[in-house]
Amino acid sequence: MTAASSFLRDAPIEHVIVPPQASELAARYDGLLAILTVICGAVLLLITVLIVVQAVRFRARGGGPRGYDRLRARHWWVEAAWTLPTLIIFLGFFAGGLALYLAAFEPTQAPALTINVIGKQWMWKAEHPNGAREINELHVPAGVDVQLRLTSQDVIHSFFVPALRVKRDVLPGRYTTLGFNATRPGIYSLFCAEYCGTDHSRMRGRVVVLEEAAYADWLSRQDAAATPAAAGAVLFRSLGCSGCHAGDGPVAAPSLAGVYGRRVPLADGRFVLADEAYLRDSILLPRKHVVAGFAPVMPSYAGQVDEAELLHLIAYLQSLGAPTGPAAGPAPEEVAP
């Protein structure tokens, strides 16, 4: 592996402990971290002081008989007195963590910008909607809801940007998403956080947050070969998909117009939502979901297309229009398995 040449210089790091707050979430994150630190610090201090003070006060050489042990006399009360507050504080932590998690990671609206990121041993490849590509670096606009669509070409990696306080595992055979809204332009560290083999620790890069205009400017200066959808359209023809799916071939295959986001009826009677994962499976494991009314004749493309090409094909399928009612094609009927 001659990846050595693709190692980037590390992003500048100025903090010793708390990373810069490059997103809205980061400030709230640090707030919650501070609350836990203060409360847990106080508990630790309490225990330490109790141990030290008692070790001195009740030391053996102190002589004399000991006082009445008030605690022990009512020890079930005492147990309750420290168990209940503990439980309540714990539930508070739980609620705080869940609330922030929901706010930060459950997107309420569609992202303004989706960027594809593929992890592979040992580099990050990103592709912007206009087809601009980069390696081990990711340019994003500030103030925009960005969503990363993550997948891996080989083993599990994890996309980690401390300044944004976000991390998401990057799995082979699956799409995971990571959303953030960066607020502060700058250059921040990007790490792979899931151990992935030899050069795991070199799988670092940088996230460059630019003002929106600067991002647009940066995009325009990249020599984008083709948008993912356009690249997908080319693949769709060269891989022979169009031969079946164009509608005029010898094989009966469903029309793919508007397939993305549709509820697809399957031969076994189930319905599935045609999301990225479904499209991906349709191409790599066509037998997994057979569309009702069609013979399972579509060949598997596993091994013929890599993750980047898959994302292109999916982008192309997504570009084929919005959902248009029920599945196109012949009426559902029994299909031999």
Binding site: F93, A104, R165
Partner: peptide
Amino acid sequence: ATLALDVHLHDT
């Protein structure tokens, strides 16, 4: 164990 905090701290 605090969901949101673990996102940053996990695997560090």
